[in-house]
Write a protein that binds this DNA or RNA. Structure first.
Lengths: 230, 230
DNA sequence: TCATCAAAAAATGCATTCATAATTCATAAT
DNA sequence: ATTATGAATTATGAATGCATTTTTTGATGA
């Protein structure tokens, strides 16, 4: 008996440079490609087992995202995270996050709210266990869920592109106990706004939440310098 | 007598793919590459007199910007402007424009305000002469000036990338006399907010201004279909 | 010892080439 | 006449090669 055609998933073949883009993006975000350092084109070719052509296409794409800086005839460099960058990026993220809050309250379904409450409880559990890695992970999912609920692909794309640029910093920046408690509390407020469909309120909470995050990262940056290269 | 070295401008050599990116972007924005059509890779190579390698790098970059859609093994297509796109893009632009208004009022200098008033007067003159092309041009400059005054590169970049996607539509969408008068009036309000450094007010006016623009473009879209290809 | 400059080495930008996938077109079958 | 099949054509994805630029290295002189 042969399976029906409809039962088969659509086979969408990804091209090599797309995979590379994601792979290298991940390397930048998790820090294995450090900010301020040169991108070792040859090494990456060996590592991924590809030629320079698709690799360089991926680099161009990442540069458009702002994760890399291309200097003509001098190659690609991992963009540094500077104080100025953060002060630039966070207000923009704030504006986008505020919008996502408003839109999410307009479009979110009851089922989605319930799902998010579950996620939230899970996160609180990790907070109580002081399990930072899992806390971060679930946290990420919650913010993604808010974006999804906003039903605006453009917004999601723009936000994610900015978030990627600062996520590197957020990963390494350790939270104090107080900040962590505060962040968790803010998340409780986020949930309540969602449950009340209070778009205005959610806007404000999300913006505050982000501003506090900025403060954390800023503190960390003060104590941690990066390589001097551009 | 040889010129001194210092007198020479820093010769920043642009790489080929950067030029190409700009050239093709322009072709998309001004409509000579129509939405929904396939990008003729070979033709463009001949036109610009380059090989496929830098051209394809440019295409990748434009795809990251959302101006093109890449289908694996099937090439690049000019993204269509759909009703849904606009309804997605404009709220995001609105949020960014509101932020730019607030920031601009904080950072703009008196000299900049004067310069903008000059621009504004020029634009009004073109309005009175019903010179749409020049009106658009100066209009563009004014909005750029507001972005510049916000002193936030990230914001400018994000905004421009979105603006590019809808500019194609704005170009072709004809304004009615009423709409044109209204837009000009809104610009007068923008100037007054800037002169008073009224960030809140400017936010609101810019957002309204944009919403009206959306209405214009939306009307146009209703009457103008695009090729059916993805 | 340090600075300067030249030559060698390495890396980048771009063109070309090759393999593979997609599209078109002609032919055959219903 | 219309649809399906398969070969020919075309276009894309990726690797390689070459010319040019940048960087490094090392030798020379102060």
């Amino acid at each position: 008996m042969t399976p029906t055609l409809a039962a088969q998933p659509v086979f969408r073949r990804k091209s090599l440079h797309e995979d590379l883009t994601e792979g290298i993006r991940e390397q930048i975000v998790n820090g294995s490609l450090a900010p301020g350092t040169k991108v070792p084109e040859k090494e990456l070719c060996l590592h991924y087992g590809v030629s320079r052509t698709p690799l360089r296409e991926a680099l161009k794409a990442l540069a458009t995202d702002g994760l890399l800086t291309l200097e003509p005839n001098r190659g690609a460099w991992v963009s540094k995270i500077t104080q100025e960058d953060l002060d630039e990026v966070f207000p923009v993220m704030g504006a986008l996050e505020a919008l996502s809050g408003e839109l999410a309250c307009k479009h979110i379904t009851a089922a989605e709210v319930r799902k998010m409450r579950t996620l939230h409880n899970k996160m609180v559990k990790y907070y109580e266990q002081r399990d930072l890695a899992n806390y971060f992970d679930v946290n990420q999912h919650i913010h993604e869920a808010i974006l999804d609920a906003a039903r605006n692909e453009t917004l999601s794309t723009q936000y994610r592109s900015l978030a990627t640029r600062v996520r590197r910093a957020r990963y390494v920046a350790n939270m104090t106990q107080e900040r962590w408690a505060q962040a968790t509390d803010e998340h409780e407020q986020i949930m309540q706004c969602l449950e009340k469909r209070d778009g205005q309120g959610l806007s404000v909470v999300l913006k505050t939440h982000l501003e506090n995050k900025l403060a954390t990262v800023r503190d960390w940056l003060k104590d941690n310098d990066q390589p001097p290269a551009a």
